[in-house]
């Protein structure tokens, strides 16, 4: 939802980043205010996933120029865990399996780490159990998942639900969802979307990276951005996603190229 006079959560200016020496992001600009939901769409290799990993602080992605401010703070001074503690959450496209560590134990460790860093109360195992079971109901998750190892043997849909469950526990200021919808059937998509919608408040913001317009039937974005070759080349409202679905990405690219041509004759 777009609110009048809401504060800026994320400000990205002319961001350039490379992986293994290959430039992937080439001057990306984006402003996200609290309360807003942004969808970033684009073809494979356009840099969508790289962008959210840079935001989360993945060491393999090297920022070569540009600026990122998160709630007014220079993001580049923060380590990945400090970003998480400050309120950035990345829901992974391919969540990691950790055999040998119980899902409940892992989530409590993460929850308590964040609570401690925010000067809030930590929960003991029993308190946490009640707390997490309540959250699981929203996501229609079987409580058995608490006893299993983190993501081990989970189906694709179960892993994604587990990501959203963690997001609901950690209550981020900025949620980054990296292809959370890919590989989900309609039922799982509906459940995951319900979770994301319930977590959206006027105080936080969400950036969805997606391939498919389908997700946006369930999570209505305030802004839709089209990425190509490491930059955002077009921004619109939710209708832009429908146009993309109907006509593909080519017309956007052509239009962007034409505009560039006009500006630099």
């Amino acid at each position: 939802m777009i609110y009048q006079d809401s504060t800026i959560v994320l400000e990205v200016r002319d961001l350039c980043a490379s992986v293994n020496g290959v430039p992937v992001l080439k001057g990306l600009n984006l402003t996200v205010k609290s309360g807003e939901i942004h969808a970033i769409m684009g073809t494979n290799g356009s840099g969508k996933s790289t962008f959210v990993k840079v935001l989360a602080g993945h060491a393999a992605y090297v920022v070569t120029s540009g600026e990122i401010y998160f709630a007014g703070q220079d993001l580049f001074t923060l380590s990945p865990e400090e970003r998480a503690r400050a309120g950035i959450f990345l829901a992974f496209q391919y969540p990691i399996e950790i055999p040998g560590v119980g899902n409940s134990q892992f989530m409590r460790l993460a929850y308590n780490t964040l609570q401690a860093s925010r000067g809030k109360e930590e929960l003991d195992p029993l308190e946490f159990d009640d707390f997490v079971r309540e959250k699981m109901q929203v996501l229609e998750m079987n409580p058995d998942f608490l006893e299993r190892s983190v993501n081990e043997g989970f189906s694709g849909g179960e892993k994604k639900r587990n990501e959203i469950l963690q997001m609901s526990l950690l209550e981020p200021r900025l949620a980054l969802l990296d292809e959370t919808d890919s590989g989900l059937d309609i039922d799982a998509l509906r459940v995951v979307a319900t979770g994301v919608n319930q977590l959206a408040t006027p105080e936080n913001a969400t950036v969805l990276v997606t391939h498919y317009q389908r997700l946006l039937n369930y999570i209505v974005p305030d802004f839709v951005h089209v990425m190509d070759d490491g930059r955002i080349i077009k921004t619109g409202n939710k209708d832009l996603a429908l146009e993309l679905e109907a006509h593909g990405y080519d017309w956007v690219n052509t239009e962007a190229a034409a505009q560039t041509a006009k500006v630099t004759p």
Binding site: A56, R83, A84, R85, L90, I96, I98, G100, A110
Partner: peptide, 23 residues
């Protein structure tokens, strides 16, 4: 990185993964 993105320090992440390896 996955564990760091959940707020755990790099040291805690390493410890947890080493523990999980044996567990």
């Amino acid at each position: 990185f996955y564990l760091q993105s959940r707020g755990l320090s790099a040291l805690t992440a390493r410890s947890l993964l080493s523990y999980a390896f044996g567990a």
